[in-house]
Each structure stands twice: as C-alpha cells, then as structure tokens.
Nucleic acid binder design. Sequence first.
DNA 1: CCGTCGGTTTCACTATTTGAAACTTAGTCT
DNA 2: AGACTAAGTTTCAAATAGTGAAACCGACGG
Lengths: 266, 266
Amino acid sequence: MAAEGHADGTVGKALDVLDMVASHGRPVRFSDLLVQSAYPKATLYRLLQTLTHQGMLTLDPDTGTYALGVRLVRLAHAAWAQSSLAPIARPHLDELAAKTGETIHLAQMDQGQVLYVDKRNAAKPVEMFAQAGKVGPAYCTGVGKAMLAWAPPEALEAAIARQSFYRHTEHTLDTPAKLIAELQAIRARGHAFDREEHESGIICCAVPILSRSGRVMGALSVTSTTARTTLDALGAQAPMIKDIAAKIAAEAESWRFPEQVQGRNA
Amino acid sequence: MAAEGHADGTVGKALDVLDMVASHGRPVRFSDLLVQSAYPKATLYRLLQTLTHQGMLTLDPDTGTYALGVRLVRLAHAAWAQSSLAPIARPHLDELAAKTGETIHLAQMDQGQVLYVDKRNAAKPVEMFAQAGKVGPAYCTGVGKAMLAWAPPEALEAAIARQSFYRHTEHTLDTPAKLIAELQAIRARGHAFDREEHESGIICCAVPILSRSGRVMGALSVTSTTARTTLDALGAQAPMIKDIAAKIAAEAESWRFPEQVQGRNA
DNA sequence: CCGTCGGTTTCACTATTTGAAACTTAGTCT
DNA sequence: AGACTAAGTTTCAAATAGTGAAACCGACGG
C-alpha cells in the first residue's frame, strides 16, 4: 500500500525501495521486500545491489538483511543544514521557548505530511535527532493546518488526497470539507489552532512561515495542555509567534539570495 | 575531478548529483552544477527534475536554486535509528561522559571517512544534528585509526587509497607506511591514541566497537586537551572505555544489528 | 531591436533496464 | 541418503528508459 505515487524512472524505483527499507523499523530480508514490492525478483535484486553498492543501504553478510546506510546520515546532515529552516531558526526558537516556557515546534511539509525539523521541549533538554526527522499528520496538527492554509490550490489538493482523516479525538476534523472550511478560517485569522484534534488535552497555536512572495516555507507552533492554559491565552501569543516567524522568514530569504554562491566543492 | 567512484547506472548518477548538491553549502543554480558535473545539460536537467519530483531535492521557484529536500531528513531519521549504533549507545555515552567529564565521540566508517553518529560535548549541551552526520578524516583521528586497525585487509586498502594524508600538525602520520605501522601498534595495544595528529593540543583515546565475529561496527573515543590531561592518563581510562564499547557491541548484536558492509562487491 | 545567457524541450540513437525462467546453494522432510 | 523446498543469484532477448546535440524560449542588458 506504499502507493508511493508514480515512480518515474529507475531512480524513482530505487528511492521507493529505500523508503520501503526505511518503513520497516529493522533490517529486512530480501524476501520480505519482495513480497511487498510490486517489482519482480530480479529487478528488486538489482535495485538493492545498486543501492548497497552506493552506500545508501548496508547488507549484513551474516544475516543477509538490508538496512539504511550511513551515507544517508551524512546527506541528511547537509540537508538539514542547507535546506531546512532549522539552522536559521535556532536562536529564534530558543527565544520563543524562553518567552513562553512551552514546547516549540518547527515544521516543514514533506509529501503531504508534516515533518518536524526542530523542537524545543518544555521539560527535557533537546533531543534533536530523536525528534527532528519525525513526521506527523497535516490535517490535525497546528503546523500542518497552518501550512495547508497557505498552500497553493494544487498542492493543497494533492496534500488532501494524502490525508487519512483518521479520527484521533472527538475534535478531529475528519473530512476534507471540514478541513477546507477550517483552512479558510485560519487564513482569515492569520494563525491556526489545534483544538485537541490530534491528542486529547494538547492544544497549540501555529503560524505559517511565509516567504516574501507568499510561499509557505514552514510553520512554527507553541504547544501546551488544556491543564496549563487555554486556547485564548495561546491565541494572545499569536502576534509574538507571528513576529518570530516573520524574522525567520526574512533571514531565510536573505540567506538564500547571496549573489555569490561560494566555493565550488569542498 | 573528484571522481566519485564509478557511477553504476542511472541511480548512481542521480545519487552523484545529490552529493554534488550536498557538497555546496547552499542552494545551487542549475548552471553551477552543470559546470562541475561531467553530465551534459539535458541529462543533468532530467536528473535534477527526477530528484526534485521525488522530494530528494527542492527547487526554489523564486531563485531557481536547488537544495537537498526534506525527504532526506526523514530518511536519515530512519537511517540513524535503525542502522547506526547511536540509539543503542546513547545511555552508554551518557555514562562515559559523566564518568570522564570529557568529550565523547561515537563514529562509524563511511566510504573511508569517519562519520560521527553521536557525541557528548564536555562543555555545551548536546547539539545533535549539528554534530551527528559530520565527517572527518580516518588517518589522523582516534576513532578513524581504531576502526582501520581492525578493518579487513581489503577494506583497509580501499580506505587508505581514499586518505589525503594531509599534514594537519607536526604529529600527523602523513604516509601510508607510517599509518600501517601505527595500526599494528594499535592492534597490539588494544586502543588507539590521537597524539595531536589532527589538531594541536587535542588528544584522544579510542577503542573499536567489535562484533563477536570480529567485524568493526564503529569506534568510541574520549577526547581531551594537553592542557587538561596527558596521553598516559587517557590511556589509563582505556579499560573502562573498552568495557563500554563491549557493552554497546553486545547490545547491538542482540538487537540483530546489521554490521558495516566491508568490501565492495565486484 | 538585437544578442546573450540561463533554462527547457525535442528527437533520433543506444545503452540500460527488464523480468521470466533457469540455476545455485542451503536447509528440511521422509 | 535422496528429493523436495525456500531463498538468493544469474542469464538473455526484448523493450524501455536514458542520452545528448541541437533547437528553442524568455528574460535581461545594451
């Protein structure tokens, strides 16, 4: 059911296999992959061999199992550093965390899902890798809705098609229609709320991070619990959150426009 | 000219492009990539398009620049969780950090280079993503030498061919011969030292993390400065470090952790 | 208005990928 | 033992997907 869309070309298939390996929590056998992949034996075999040879997968010669390779960790480091908002946003998240004392999330959109790229936890110290890289649903989280609300129509449509609309709580918006109505309200209001839609007792206020041209770059949220605060109180913080989001956007944009792309490789 | 190995098939080329984008610290233009890639315009264009379509790259429509995509961050999260020693080693690193009060490194080998998968910093709080994923040279770091010392001959040869042997300090082992002699001594001694070979004033003691079958899974090191301690004092800690490395190895193995691939197949 | 510079598309040519089927180990059952 | 079976590896003709020189387009700058 991976239904990872239209695998364009060999590369698409290879990446599909990569996802397949990733989706299992543990090393997988060739045959395990074979049953769930649409590809015939020989094809899958060659794909795995190529990926292994490339260091994207590692093959344990003893158990004959495949796992994601360390090359991915290296690539991801670069990805996180260069293409996510995290490094730029870092000091702003610290500031926001200090001011609110609440949990802060910085997220971006990845194939219709919310991907958390950074986080400040109210209680525990930062556990970056353990949190960054996690994904969540878009239709029932503050950051997800904030990003969807400002997404271009065709992206929104594609995203909606990928939502499960599983009813996590009694407040979950469990149909596309409800969600679309909500997005409209969010646009009008300027920020999104999570009204215990994902987890009971958990509420949040989220704002989009928009580029000057109005493109959604990510979202920023302050999360709390109904025990500790109310939606209204959170909403009162919206201007400040929005302000910080704007700062992040501005910096991100000026960081991306350096006339001179420095250094050829290395 | 860096000759990123022999790109096998289209997939290899695509991954090559990915590395190329990663190697620049920032978003790159099509034309920047074109000049440094061996591929002709149309080919590179199609490759970029496929990767972008797949979410491995993102194309900023405003500036027309490519950057690594967030899908990589997601994949890496899985890679880190499933194929690196980090999650298993975490509590042990904490313990070692507490006992020594020094900087701790956990590393694995990636294409002849040292890849740091986790770290405990003596001074500052953990900055995971900023550190994990970083690469370093193998021939002049404690963890690097520890892993090379127990590497199978064929892998060692391949790794040596990839070292630059740049003379970082006056203590750097700057020839294969010197390195090989040192590796022998390390094997005999059971642990490796970094005698200010990479950075002046920085010393460390590293041990390999070996599977029961003797394969190198990674390495663990305690780093300090000449101002604070001596090699002998660090060496005295070796048994304890080794003990912790053994615990990590045992747990990793019982978790059916797939070990590093060694050689490349034909 | 013309020339140039990025970037995108075309299209005949070819190399790569495909996948059914045959083959090889390494276990297992009788 | 021998003869099955499961899991992984290899073959090879057919077909598909990738190639890249060159043409094309649109946005500058003069």
